[in-house]
Amino acid sequence: MPSGIRMARDLAALAGRLLVAEQMQLPLGTRLALTDGILRQMDRYTASAVHEARQAGAGWEDVAAAARLTAAQAGARWDTPALRVLFPSLQAAERPRAMQQHLADALAYLQIGSGVSVDEAAERAGLQMPYVLQVLEGVCVPSWPELYTLACVFDGRPEDLRVLWESALGSVHPPRLPAQGAAGYLAAALRGLHLAAGSPTMRRLSKQALLPPECLTEVLEGRHTPPWNTTARLVRALGGRVEDAEPLWQAVLQAAVGLHGTDSSRQLGCEHCRVAAQDGP
């Protein structure tokens, strides 16, 4: 399910295109096609917002009150079968495109939070504005220097986007690092996924990851690395791919074993992490 922030950003992009089309007096058919796209995107945003509210614990009565509907009407409009129509499951061939969109979502979240306009960002990064728009919309993957510069322009940490960038290109290659560096690299990857998911609160994320909010904060800050089952569950909760995260986690384990011996795998994470790992991935 795409995040609400992604749906809202796409909606804003469509509205911007309609404004340009109107200013340039493009053919009526072009403007009406954009209008149809905006109406469809509004439906998708609404469904995504409802889905996120439901995941956060809202009942159908709460949704109905916000939408000025009855609970039965809200359930019928946004239940699972209806969501499947709006958001068909990704096919295997579409997964690389999905990871490209994750990178765009994270960068767009930084851009919105920074308050830096697209044209200002393009000027400061030395890039063309149409190209920056394509990057923010997930149409293309920038080079690492371009992404690094844009992340800095948007007051973000470029290292948080590194693994998302590698994943968008098709593969993740963890560097050889000491134990603390390897753990920090994995934490940065998790923070990137957190950005791409729209930075959900720790309280909301804890319900899916089965970890206390304070523990999640420490994990994202790189203070400790959970066992693999717990890490995999967190990656899934953030909409990431476990196959991208596993080599990063293995690098942490290998570095820890080299430093502390073969019992290191039993000591990864805090007590909450180790208990959660017993519940499976």
Rank of each mutant, 00 (worst) to 15 (best):
V139R: 13
P227Y: 08
D155A: 14
G59K: 11
E218K: 15
T231Y: 05
L147G: 00
P145D: 11
R54D: 02
C270L: 12
A179N: 09
S206A: 12
A8W: 06
E159L: 14
A106P: 01
V242K: 04
A187R: 01
G181Y: 03
H272W: 08
A189E: 02
A197L: 07
E166Y: 07
H272C: 14
L26I: 04
R233L: 06
F87S: 03
R124T: 09
P174G: 08
M7Y: 03
R97T: 13
D279G: 08
R124K: 14
G239W: 04
A251H: 02
L110N: 02
V20W: 06
V118T: 15
Q267A: 15
C140I: 12
L147V: 09
D105P: 01
A179T: 08
Q73I: 12
A82R: 06
V141I: 15
A76I: 07
Q55L: 14
V20D: 15
T70F: 09
L133N: 13
A125R: 01
G239Q: 08
L103M: 11
C215H: 09
A93L: 08
V141T: 12
D43F: 07
E52F: 03
L161I: 09
T35E: 14
V257C: 12
A15R: 14
T230C: 12
A276M: 06
A276D: 04
P2M: 10
W60K: 05
Q134F: 04
P2D: 09
S143E: 13
Q101V: 12
D279W: 14
P281H: 03
A66K: 11
R9K: 09
Y45P: 02
L234T: 01
E221P: 03
V153Q: 02
L136H: 04
S117T: 15
A64E: 03
